[in-house]
Amino acid sequence: MNNALAALHQVAPAPDVPRRKDWAEIERALGTGLPADYKELVRIYGGSNWDDYLYVLEPDCPNAHYDLLTWADQQAEDLEDLWAYEEKPAELEAGDGARVVPWAVTDNGECLYWLVRPGLDPDGWTVMVNEARGARWEHFSVSCTRFLASALSGDLRSGILSSSFPLAVHGFRRLGPA
């Protein structure tokens, strides 16, 4: 277990039943590998809600509203349409084929993405946050689990995410059945 996952375990002990996934099939459907820390996060916590605000997406999530593959398809299409008339974030303008893939959303509509660069191993992906109804983006040079753990501890602050996040007393729930 990496340090970020260990920190999350302090916030919310692992549910009794891990979630098993066919990662090869999921990655084939997505068209890319996924970070090892995310796979471990999903194995331990599954699709999950943190502090009644942030939802970690899960492939084949028992709550279909938080399915990673569905979100990835929808966001790719929506962002391409959006960028026809709105400027892309600088991290995606380099012309190297960089793209974003969602891994979490909030109840306000913000979306958290991995910044995916061609030739970069998924374990090196970093996090980008996009405001719900606007063109503002933030980039954080950390993994998704480090982002989540650091946001919950208050060590990392986003100007886009709700100022009410994190809660003083953390809440966690797994989406769908145990």
Results as ranks from 00 to 15, higher is better:
Ala4Trp: 00
Leu5Arg: 12
Leu8Arg: 04
Val11His: 06
Pro15Cys: 02
Pro15Thr: 02
Pro18Ala: 14
Arg19Asp: 11
Ala24Asn: 13
Glu27His: 14
Arg28Asp: 05
Arg28His: 15
Ala29Ile: 15
Ala29Asp: 11
Gly33His: 04
Asp37Ile: 10
Tyr38Leu: 04
Lys39Asn: 06
Glu40Tyr: 04
Leu41Asn: 11
Val42Met: 06
Tyr45Val: 06
Gly46Leu: 14
Ser48Glu: 10
Asp51Ile: 07
Asp51Pro: 10
Tyr53Gly: 03
Tyr55Lys: 08
Tyr55Asp: 01
Val56His: 02
Pro59Arg: 08
Asp60Gln: 08
Ala64Ser: 08
Tyr66His: 07
Thr70Glu: 07
Thr70Gln: 06
Ala72Glu: 06
Gln74Trp: 08
Gln75Asn: 12
Glu77Pro: 04
Asp78Leu: 02
Leu79Ser: 01
Leu82Cys: 07
Glu87His: 10
Pro89Arg: 07
Ala90Phe: 02
Glu93Thr: 12
Glu93Met: 14
Glu93Val: 11
Ala94Ser: 05
Ala94Asp: 12
Asp96Ile: 07
Asp96Trp: 10
Gly97Cys: 04
Val100Asn: 05
Ala104Trp: 00
Val105Cys: 06
Asn108Cys: 14
Glu110Pro: 00
Leu112Arg: 05
Tyr113Phe: 14
Val116Leu: 08
Leu120Arg: 13
Asp121Tyr: 15
Asp121Arg: 10
Pro122Arg: 05
Pro122Gly: 11
Gly124Gln: 08
Val129Lys: 00
Val129Gln: 03
Arg133Pro: 02
Gly134Pro: 10
Gly134Tyr: 00
Glu138Lys: 11
His139Thr: 08
Phe140Ala: 14
Phe140Cys: 14
Ser141Ile: 05
Ser141Glu: 15
Val142Pro: 00
Cys144Ala: 12
Phe147Trp: 06
Leu148Met: 08
Leu148Gly: 07
Gly154Arg: 00
Asp155Gly: 04
Leu156Tyr: 03
Ser158Cys: 15
Pro166His: 15
Ala168Gln: 06
Val169Asp: 09
Val169Trp: 07
His170Arg: 06
Arg173Asn: 13
Gly176Leu: 02
Pro177Leu: 11
Pro177Lys: 15
Ala178Lys: 08
